[in-house]
């Protein structure tokens, strides 16, 4: 079942029709799908990867991947949730690759906390996502608070147990309540996959 976040009403019939059209060979219909969801997915990638450049690459990679795998999409889950699933796993891969590649860079980043994002973006919330939350926490916050998915749906997106997610989210909530947004924290982002 689809629940919409306020202000972002997506006509599911149009999306379903577009998917059918793409599967029937009308590639151009995929443009509708991209334009409906690209901003959401871009923003999601940006808050997980904390880099405009990486988010730009990621959103394109994700939509290409979704297109290539479209035949595997089963209509039992909402298309948006499936899109997030692809995005989540893609970002997870990126974070892992980056972690291997950039251990030294993250040491550097500790001294230069703003190196990963555009200083123009600096406002309390940006800082919260960039500095105070891990990538996994950002992911939880977006899926739960912004997209308002149930823990079961989040479990499907992240391929993990919903009870674990519930606990993690409870911890995150306490952290947010405790924390003032303008206080610093750990700059290191890392996404974890729990089962």
């Amino acid at each position: 079942m689809e629940r919409r976040s306020p202000g972002v009403q997506v006509n599911q019939t149009i999306i379903k029709e577009a998917i059918d059209q793409v599967l029937a060979g009308n590639r151009e219909a995929y443009r509708t799908i991209i334009q409906t969801y690209e901003r959401k997915i871009y923003t999601y990638c940006y808050y997980i990867l904390r880099s405009h450049e990486e988010a730009e690459d990621a959103v394109q990679d994700i939509f290409v991947k979704v297109y290539q795998e479209l035949r595997r999409y089963e209509k039992r889950v909402s298309f948006r949730a499936w899109l997030y699933k692809v995005a989540y796993h893609h970002c997870l891969d990126q974070v892992r690759k980056r972690k291997r590649r950039n251990r030294l860079l993250s040491l550097y980043k500790e001294q230069q906390p703003k190196a990963y994002y555009n200083p123009n973006d600096e406002e309390p919330l940006q800082k919260l996502f960039m500095d105070d939350l891990t990538a996994e926490e950002s992911n939880l916050l977006i899926l739960k608070v912004v997209e308002q998915y149930s823990f079961e749906e989040m479990g499907q997106i992240m391929d993990c147990n919903s009870a674990t997610l519930r606990k993690k989210f409870e911890r995150l909530r306490k952290k947010l309540v405790r924390q003032r947004m303008n206080e610093g924290g750990s700059p290191h982002g890392e996404m974890a996959r729990s089962n």
Partner: peptide, 17 residues
């Protein structure tokens, strides 16, 4: 904030297509 987040370009659809 999340919903108002702007993309650096109008759309990525051309390059994705």
């Amino acid at each position: 904030t999340f919903q108002n987040h702007e993309m650096p370009v109008e759309s990525f659809s051309d390059s994705i297509m």
